[in-house]
Amino acid sequence: MVTLIERTDSDLPDDVCDALARACEREPEGTVARETLRIILESAALSRNSVLPICQDTGSILAIVRAEPTKRVFDIERALREGLRHLTKKGMLRQNCVDPLTGENTGDNLGEHVPQIHFIPTPAPATVSLMLKGGGSENMSAQYSLPDSGLDAGRDLDGVRRCILDALFRAQGKGCAPGIVGVCIGGDRASGYLLAKEMLFRRLDEPNPVHDLELLEERVVEEANGLGIGPMGLGGRSTLLGARIGLAGRHPACFFVTVAYSCWATRRMTAELDEEGRIARWL
């Protein structure tokens, strides 16, 4: 589990790196946008090669465990908690858990409901998906309830598009653009945020299984990049690396659109575990 956390923390996924490299190529020579992306790529390579945190904000921790409902699940949970404590001490993770009442930092990334571990009963083999999501980008996430007259957003895909573009406009550079958005259409207030975040596990080079959503993803990325917000909000052609949109059944009275904004340093890895709980392969 230590390997999974450490790799997620230091090794930016290849699809994200590829998208950043393409974004860098798109920006003209001598611009702030190109220089910013060059620094980003250099910093990510440095973190990978030296096994250092990609960002000093090593994020809040979300783990999704898919495994058979046996006692082994407790072993996975224990290993995760021990791994977090160990890597915090080692300087791979920042102390990112604060008691909201006393303001005290727990010092080891463990606390009430921290880390977040979601268990989904699934036939073997077991997999663990881990996301370390920075607080700055988390602050830029948003949930909309349609219809929204302020945005002129109705209960259709154009309404969804308006919500996503509104979230991106509001974020400007504050969520560390060029980012990625995970979007959930439907669900309730709680599931919407979780599913929107889960969308961020989808690789950027994977097509959306729903054709209409794929068209919307492409449209939103193109329009977002036309806004001119650019890397870190300093201007340029690269505002959004990708949009990953998914669906959840909704209550007839509710139509939520939840946008999970993730910074360029989108840190997520999934590993398949063997019978002993060791990493069998990376997914």
């Binding site: 910093s43 250092l52 960002c55 303001g103 870190m232």
Partner: peptide, 28 residues
């Protein structure tokens, strides 16, 4: 303005830590 997330790149330019104060607020 600095490039957000470029944490390793920026850390390389930090030559030394002179002192750390107000640690009661937690290390970060």
């Amino acid at each position: 303005h600095l490039t957000g997330g470029a944490a390793s790149y920026i850390a390389r330019t930090i030559v030394s830590v002179e002192e750390v104060y107000l640690t009661g607020f937690g290390q970060p």
